[in-house]
Nucleic acid binder design. Sequence first.
DNA 1: CTTCCTCTTTAGCCTTTTCAAAACTTTCAT
DNA 2: ATGAAAGTTTTGAAAAGGCTAAAGAGGAAG
Lengths: 233, 233
Amino acid sequence: MPTSTVENYVKNIYTEQLASHPRPVPMGRIASLLNVVPGTATTMVKSLAASGLVTYKPRVGVHLTERGEKLALTMLRKHRLVEVFLVKIMGYDWSEIHDDAERLEHAVSEKMLDSMDRLCGYPEFDPHGDPIPSASGKVAIRSLRSLNTCTVGALVVVARLLNQETTFLQFANAQGLKPGTHLTITQRIPSADALSLKLENTGQVVVLGSKVAESILVEDLEGHHQPLADADR
Amino acid sequence: MPTSTVENYVKNIYTEQLASHPRPVPMGRIASLLNVVPGTATTMVKSLAASGLVTYKPRVGVHLTERGEKLALTMLRKHRLVEVFLVKIMGYDWSEIHDDAERLEHAVSEKMLDSMDRLCGYPEFDPHGDPIPSASGKVAIRSLRSLNTCTVGALVVVARLLNQETTFLQFANAQGLKPGTHLTITQRIPSADALSLKLENTGQVVVLGSKVAESILVEDLEGHHQPLADADR
DNA sequence: CTTCCTCTTTAGCCTTTTCAAAACTTTCAT
DNA sequence: ATGAAAGTTTTGAAAAGGCTAAAGAGGAAG
């Protein structure tokens, strides 16, 4: 059985690999994701390579092997299912689930996972809008766009929050911006690098910096479909 | 924060201390409870003593300090509350909760524990009938007697199973012997060292060896109250 | 009062995971 | 092309837990 340290390395390499795509994941990235000094990452990655979870090219970077990817998907499934469970069953607020999920994901058995899945109604997405891999390792793909790429006047629904930091999540939560929220882009203020939105249900107006808007992914609600940039992978 | 290894040592020393009472817990006992060689137990106990969780007299044994006892009660509370949770919320059978509880107890936060407590209706006993320490560390005391000490004809209710082994639990479960089961002692067969019982609700007759009967604690249902031996602490 | 036998401790090693600091490689700009 | 900056790897050490094997202590039994 892999230790929880190994599980964390593999999970983080997986999500990073999605972003850095054909290029391998560099050591520095791994070190900072896992909050260790670079030397530690080198040592660990060599041992991951020795157990056949990654391929490692010195001074270049890391790629998950098939086995590594499978383990990563299992961990992602556990993590995200635990998150849903904490919100739907345990009564957590969706902005405060991350830390507990991070610990629990290493302690839940397959049996426990099945129970959680059933109790939550076999969800496809976690409370941040991240897709939950199926037991067989399949991940639902949606074509979402960043709020940043939307034209003024567009009616969209929030689908996914990319930034998992507690402070960001609490901010988004306080503004009423969570997956499922319908909103219209009312104004773009280039001088302030900002975006103004109106929430459909409450009518509340929210102004966001483009940095924030970038990590909020939405889905178009009307037949607009004007492509401004690529926000997918 | 204590590691889960430390948590396990302290928890096991606590329950063992209840049994060996005024005498300190010997090293050999600790080693076998934790499935390690004696030398390992010695090393760990010395480090527990250094962190102020136990007092250790070489070649004699170990006693929990106040701090150690507090930690032990916290772990016992976590373990037993998790067990209730697995049965009442997650749909586990009460005979198969031990292993998962053993892993989860080290991963649940205070917040999670509170949620579980609320969801389960603030239970006082776990599915085996073991008392759940309160958040402040108080343990409910019941005066129970072993099934072995009951007279023929007595009507009793099963209150607690002392043996936590899966095989024993599955056997008890299959026989319908779980906390809450009402039964009458119908016969005592000294030649076979056995005891015959009739379950009140199903009418099923069960024959137990005295070894098994010893680890089943019951509560008298009628005003019989004939003390045969001591089964408390 | 020795001699065993049992239990406990010591000693020496191993594995994981981490850190700090030194020693490279690459890359990039001049 | 060269020399510094940036990113990586090595080296040496430490903490936590565990094991094996040898050595010690103490009580029971002759």
